[in-house]
Simulated scan of single mutants.
Amino acid sequence: MRTTLSVTRIGHACQLIDIGGIRVLTDPWFTQAATYYPGEPVASTVAALGPVDAVVVSHEHYDHCDLDALVAGGFDLGTPLIGPGTVAAIARDKGFRDIRVVEAWEAATVGDLTVTAAPGKHGVHEVTFVIQAGGRTVFFGGDSLRVPELDTIPDRFGPLDLAILPVNGLCIRPLHLQQVVMDAEEAAGLTAALQPALAIPQHYAFHSGRLGDRMITKGDRDPRHYADAVARIAPRIPVRLVLPGTPVEVR
């Protein structure tokens, strides 16, 4: 019998991935700040998550590394937390006790779970992740730009069951609209290279508030642009647009 695989999007890039009962929380974000708005309901509180076997964090930006919310919500700080060195330093300060540092192509194991960091590129140091257990393989793209090394993932790890990719093409206005996240077309191109059994977009509802959207950030908040691009570039790959809190089973 094939190992079960499901994913529930909590919101933004915060996902709860379940591989045969092994539960992995990605890029936690549960709160809101002056220029960080989820733009959609957050589907769970920290307390309601239930048991989590590992946390993976791609980089230190607040909307991906909301460790204060985990601490305040009573999260078990003995849970293994996996991420790059920049994240590890923050996690230690917050009281996490089992921190696994991984940089590109380095792996950490938690029981039957293997998490391998893959390259990423963003406004700060970032890694992406290949998450494996029970013969299942998931790629989690954080909010990275598309970098050429990501195209090699199927050659390194074999077929992918699921790819979760950012799609909003976020640009920073004070930096002359410097792009820091892959956009819908770039994410669709990566999807075609990865050839997952299923693709799910993330990191699109976020916004910076009425003033922040005019002064700080610019992004595409419509995930249908990604779905349309995949349908055009890689029509055999199914895409699911998922509301927060909706579990998706990957067959």
Rank of each mutant, 00 (worst) to 15 (best):
R9C: 09
I10W: 07
G11C: 10
H12C: 00
H12L: 13
A13I: 00
D18K: 01
D27K: 10
P28K: 09
P28H: 07
W29T: 01
F30C: 04
A33K: 14
Y36R: 15
P38V: 04
E40M: 03
P41D: 05
A47P: 02
A47Y: 00
A47S: 15
P51N: 03
Y62C: 05
H64L: 12
A69Q: 06
V71D: 08
F75R: 08
G78C: 04
G78E: 07
T79D: 11
P80W: 04
P84A: 13
G85D: 14
T86Y: 12
T86A: 15
A89W: 08
F96D: 10
R100W: 03
V101F: 07
W105P: 06
E106I: 08
V115R: 04
G120M: 05
K121I: 01
V124D: 14
V124N: 13
H125D: 14
H125F: 06
F129A: 07
R136S: 04
G141V: 11
G141H: 11
E149Q: 15
D151N: 12
P154G: 06
P154D: 06
P159M: 05
L162E: 10
L162R: 09
I164W: 01
L165A: 02
P166T: 04
N168F: 01
V180G: 02
A184K: 04
E186G: 08
E186Y: 00
P196E: 06
I200S: 00
H203T: 01
H203F: 10
H203V: 02
S208D: 04
G209C: 13
R210C: 03
L211N: 00
T217N: 09
G219A: 15
D220Y: 03
H225G: 08
H225Q: 10
Y226C: 02
A231K: 11
A231W: 01
I233Q: 13
P238N: 13
P247L: 08
V248C: 06
R251F: 10
